[in-house]
Design a protein around this nucleic acid. Structure first.
Lengths: 184, 184
DNA sequence: AGTTTATGTAAACCATCGTTTACTTAATTG
DNA sequence: CAATTAAGTAAACGATGGTTTACATAAACT
C-alpha cells in the first residue's frame, strides 16, 4: 500500500499552525486570537509556536506574507480591472485568501501594525504602483488600498447587509466603476 | 475674586476620563488602551471608571456616542457634499472629532464591535440614508461608510504619505468626486 | 540494537488587565 | 461645629496570555 505518513512531521505541523493562525487572525484579530486557541485548532501544543516561529509576531508575519504573496492584482487586462477586483474581494470561495481582514484587524497592536505596513508596501503597493504607471501610480495605488479596505471593513468586520454576499447589484456596479476609475 | 473651583468635582472628573478615553481609544484601540493608562492621563484613579461608567465597555460606548453625535454630515448643500466630507475627514484641526479611528480600531473586540454597530446604525447610517433619499439610500449610505473608512484607515492607522496631511491634490479631487457620486 | 536527534507535551512563570473591596478625605448638611 | 454624604485612593483578586523550562517519545542514524 501507500507509504504510511509518520506521526510526527515538522513541515505538516508548521503548516497546520500557519493555517489556524490565518483563520484566527482574520476572524478575531491579532490581539484577540490567543496562541492557545490557535494551537488547539491545529491540534498541537502552544510551545511549538516558539520553536517554529519564535514569537506570536513572527507567526503573524509568516501568515500574512503567505496571503499577500498569493494575491496578485496585476495579472488581468486593464479594461476589466474594476470588475476583477470586486470579484476577488467579494467571491466567497476566495474569502480565506483575502488578506485584508487580517490586516485591518491588526491595526491596534503596534508590533503587528509595523509588520503590516512593511509587507503591504513591499508585496502589494510597490508592484501595484509600478503596474499603474508613472503618472500618479503611487497615489492611485493608495486610493486602491483605501477603497478595497473600506469595502472589506463593512463586509468582514462590521457587516452591512447591502455590502454582504451577494453584494447589492447597485453597490457592486458602483465599486467596479470606482475601482476602474483608478486605471483609466 | 472669582469663585475658587473645588478640588473635587464629579462632572469635571467624568469629562476628563471621557476625553482621555477618546484619545486613547482613537490612537491605540479599544483592547490596547488600558484603564490604568486612560485614568493616569486624566489624573485620577482607575477605580473611578467603575463608579462613573460601570465598565470599560460602557466607557467606550459613552465616548463613541459623544463623537458620533457631533459629526453631522447632512447639514450642507448637496452640490458640495463630496468636498465637504473630504474636508471633514482630512482637516487636521477636526482630527480629534473624527470617530472613525476609534470605530476601526475597535473591530477586534466582540463587545466593542457590537456597540459600534449599534451606534453607527442609529446615529449615522439611518440619518444619512434618509437624507440620501428613498432610491438606494441605504446602499449609498453603506458605500459612503466604506469609502470614508478606507480613507481613514490609510491616514490614521497605516499612514500612507499620499493620503496623509496635506492630502495629495489628485487624491483629494478623486475622493471628493467619488463621494459626490453618491448623491448625484 | 542502541544511541542520538528531532518532535511534541505538560506545567509553571511572569506580566498585564478589568474589577472589587476597604479605606481616606473633602464637601455638604442639620 | 458635628455628622453625614460624596469623591477619590490604594491595594489586592481572579483571570488571561505569551513564553520558558523540564521532561517524554517518535524517528533517524551508526
Amino acid at each position: 500500500m501507500g507509504d504510511r505518513k509518520p506521526q510526527r512531521d515538522a513541515q505538516r505541523t508548521r503548516a497546520a499552525i500557519l493555517d489556524a493562525a490565518r483563520d484566527a487572525f482574520s476572524s478575531r484579530g491579532y490581539a484577540a486570537a490567543g496562541l492557545r486557541e490557535i494551537t488547539a485548532a491545529a491540534g498541537v501544543n502552544p510551545a511549538l509556536v516558539s520553536r517554529y516561529f519564535g514569537s506570536k509576531e513572527k507567526l503573524f508575519e509568516a501568515a500574512l506574507a503567505e496571503l499577500l504573496d498569493g494575491a496578485v492584482l496585476t495579472r488581468g487586462p486593464r479594461e476589466t480591472f474594476g470588475e476583477a477586483v470586486v470579484a476577488l474581494l467579494t467571491d466567497h470561495t476566495a474569502a480565506r485568501r483575502n488578506p485584508l481582514p487580517m490586516m485591518l484587524f491588526a491595526g491596534a497592536d503596534p508590533g503587528a501594525r509595523a509588520i503590516v505596513q512593511r509587507l503591504l508596501e513591499e508585496l502589494t503597493l510597490a508592484p501595484l504602483a509600478d503596474w499603474l504607471g508613472p503618472v500618479e501610480g503611487r497615489s492611485r495605488a493608495a486610493r486602491f488600498a483605501a477603497l478595497a479596505s473600506g469595502l472589506t471593513v463593512y463586509r468582514a468586520i462590521y457587516p452591512l447587509t447591502e455590502l454582504a454576499s451577494p453584494l447589492d447589484p447597485a453597490a457592486r456596479a458602483w465599486f467596479a466603476a470606482t475601482f476602474q476609475s483608478l486605471v483609466d
